[in-house]
Design a protein around this nucleic acid. Sequence first.
DNA 1: GGTCCGCTCGTACCCTGGTAGGAGAGCCCA
DNA 2: TGGGCTCTCCTACCAGGGTACGAGCGGACC
Lengths: 217, 217
Amino acid sequence: MIRVLLVDDQPMVRAGLGLILRSQPDIQVVGECGDGGGVVHTVSECTPDLVCMDVQMPIVDGVEATRRLRAADGPPVCILTTFGDEEVLWSAVDAGAAGFELKSATPENLIEAVRTVASGGTWIDGTLLGPILDSYRQSARSRTLHRKRLDALTDRELDVLRLMARGACNREIAEQLFLAETTIKTHVSSLFNKLGTRDRAAAIVLAYDAGLVRPRR
Amino acid sequence: MIRVLLVDDQPMVRAGLGLILRSQPDIQVVGECGDGGGVVHTVSECTPDLVCMDVQMPIVDGVEATRRLRAADGPPVCILTTFGDEEVLWSAVDAGAAGFELKSATPENLIEAVRTVASGGTWIDGTLLGPILDSYRQSARSRTLHRKRLDALTDRELDVLRLMARGACNREIAEQLFLAETTIKTHVSSLFNKLGTRDRAAAIVLAYDAGLVRPRR
DNA sequence: GGTCCGCTCGTACCCTGGTAGGAGAGCCCA
DNA sequence: TGGGCTCTCCTACCAGGGTACGAGCGGACC
């Protein structure tokens, strides 16, 4: 039996959600909340297996409430929202949400989302997946355009550029590649010419833009 | 009726996939391919609604075949692979795949993937979604850690750092901020101290790592 | 009123970064 | 075999980057 806590400021929405979920023999709605503020407390009382959380709420919004639940080692959270823009999705993911479903989804999808999240899985509404991957593809496309400029570089010059783009000075690059510093200077000048950059700062920026190196995280 | 083309170098896998898909009354397997090389040609002959594509194949791999199909304005591609590492996923997405499912998935999931992709949707295996979001969360976490170091900077120093991280030299920064070059030097030295960086190269790297500036795409 | 801080600007100095030009060795390909 | 390219290393030179230190001004805070 899957025990669900519903959090939404609109009683009508809670009623509708409850109706859909209760139609399943293995799903049980064990509590409701009208704001994100009391969620942590309510959870400790009714011990749900997962929390269905709205985003827009008057006092404490769903993202913040999700963060608090995660901090309190609470049950997994499935975000339920009206507007599925990317910003909200990422902030919810950042807060630790395991599921993200639109209120416009079919009851079947909603139930599947609940089942997936309750069993420890991850769920993102299918209609959102498309735009997300599209934006990734777009960024990948212009990255390959940048890469074309890097194609002119020799292997050695790429070695130097990579180290340079990690903040290494010429002497350090020389040490790491077992070369003389003057050699590095030669490579550096050469790759500046090919890339059309005048100094290492611009080259580093280009290395990031082209995706040769990625921000370390 | 959904018309499917199967592409996999192993006949056994094609047989198994076919068995699963043909069990559905609305799905029809209209062709098979043993390598990615002939996919574009085969598609023009048997006109499928979608292509189920293996990744590892002897001559032309699934990612490259997907790219060619996209270039030829072919039907959507659902990638079917044994190993679900992130690299493969992103390269497949980059190539234009609309679906990504593991061979270890349940027949139900496979069928759902096919139905989703055939109807123009996007599908990613649920077990992969978790690790992807985890890595995103990790990156977000250490981004905030880096940001802590940026918190020590004054507004003016942030202005300077932002321009510096776009490749501007001191004189250009001075011009853009309507300040003297010596002032910029003061700010630059000060922010190096606060960030613990010794030169602008390292500061630029930190600006990217902290997410203060993002690769331009 | 005094103090702290951020912002501005200056001088003086050193050092790394970047350029110009040359040169030798190894490799591939016509 | 000769030409072209890459990789290596050198000398010499100069501008910009970075540091150290000082100083004036204005706002915030006690």
